[in-house]
Design a protein around this nucleic acid. Sequence first.
DNA 1: TCGGATGACGGTTCAAGGGG
DNA 2: TCCCCTTGAACCGTCATCCG
Length: 583
Amino acid sequence: MRDHTLGWVQNSSNFENLRNFVEAFVPNSKRWNYIMKTLSETDIVRDPDVRQSLKTALNQSVVKLNFSQLVGTRSPQNDKNSCNAIGQIAVAGQRRPFVDDWSAACFLRWAECLGFVKTDMEAYWFKLTDRGRLFASDFVVSNLNDNEALVQGLMEYPPVSRILKYLKENNSRAVSKFELGQNLGFSGEDGFTSMGQSTLSYLRRVDNMKDRKKLLTDVEGSSDKYARMICSWLSCLGWVKQEPFSLENKNFKDPIKCPWFYRIEFRGENILRRIDGVSIHPSVEKYVSWNMLATKAKNKVFLRNRRAMLLNILKSKKSSITEDYIISEMEKKGFPDYIYELPVDFIGLVNCGIEIETSGVSKKNYFLRSKIKGLIIPQQKNITYLEDAKLEKLKHEIRRKTPNIDPRYVELIEISRSKSLAKIFEVQVADLLQKEYGLETTLLGGGWAPDSLAFVEDAGCSYGVIIDTKAYKDGFSLPVSEQDKMIRYIEDNKNRPTQSQGNKFWWRNFPEKIEDFKFLFVSSKFSNSSIQKGLEYIFSRTQVHGAVLNAEQILYGAELIKTKKINLEEFGGFFKEKEIYFE
DNA sequence: TCGGATGACGGTTCAAGGGG
DNA sequence: TCCCCTTGAACCGTCATCCG
């Protein structure tokens, strides 16, 4: 019950709707009256018992509502004109007089993270705060900056600081939602996905309207969307300016206009100064809830506890503390070998907008610059209990063995096992090959093209790789259909027909001079019995060498290349119709 | 396009049914 | 008859992607 995610808002961005949501907690307010009337005079909440219980809940002098009373559930497919929660009725939907459960949950998250409602962690109900009451009573849509409750709420919400700060550091240019998403929250972890900057290079090469439209509106990870929402709030207050970016693409006469680029405004810079504290004014205390420290990750409770513990340790000292001290304290709390996890938690917390400064070279010192409040670890048995310990252990081991690559890539282990993250897996593999291997990569996708291409073009070393990624929980067995698909890609690349279907002429992304090609499958793991036969079959048909590479090994390879233990030429030598093992 | 809306996934809960 | 255990379906929370 109390494990619900809070603090990250995906759907909601209309302030009037937020006011309406908050007013559900204010007896006799306009929206409260509307909700009561709807419950009394209509049957959009079909069950009379539910209707009555919602009315009873609203009729208290202090309105306290639990999660299901606020958020409810989705109405059945055959009865889309019904709903079952106060939060759903509080906000008018796009296609109905009410919103669905997910949108209601997002409005609840929005109201909570701005401090307009607060929760009792043990009983788990929500009620109005003084700030929420002020926000609703002072609300004038045309003058949000005068709504002190709103301004204070936004300043205390760490991700707002994060976005403003990132935009300030890059204020010579407009920044895309993808770049912001990659640098927001626990980016890379399940629930914080980002499509990354590569989407832009894909847009630069797209050659048909259908894909172009899709890329502009449909390709977006959760973190990218969190960033877009926050920027949309801030642009309503003039703290941030939306500044569409024109992308050149030689397949179209006019540049492609990308709307989701942002730049900080003068007012935003002032707010940033207020957050950090200017002269006699103290810095703003940031509200960090336990529920925002992980969202969809498998071990979210474990991760939230771990991160909250780290913050508490940092908070307990007024000055900077050594890495060794943190690690020994974490060990006492039941988190052994924390040295390998500290970098991820550190980056994630900073990317949430919590300022932690580091100093020192070989051994780092940490100092919590932000003042934080509201962090309560719920009382639970087995506070360090770890679900799916095997996978977490593997990730831990990989972090230990790959100190020189971006620790966030370890999430590839999880992503590679999740069908629903197939697209993210594709993106992340290409990203890893580019950033850590130093290969040039191109994302493709679509039915008639491989997922991505990678190549190197140096004086001594030049080859291209055709890549297919498979995000399968139980591994990939290279069935005949997939062998045939790869053979077709290789043949197409060899023959380069002038007529092509679907994603046309994808091979043009290889530089013309490259003559040596390879193929590669990347997945969580491979059931090895049939793999080699399949790879050999593809070779026998095409005379092109290939391999398979699992999510763990691709990370070890990155470490070897990063530390110059092998180079790209040697990497090319690994394609021998086998599964690649670096160690 | 923006501001949600939708279908899906992975997990949990719960009740029915079977065996001892 | 009672109790425990298994099974599977309904339910729930949370996206990641889609779209009027």
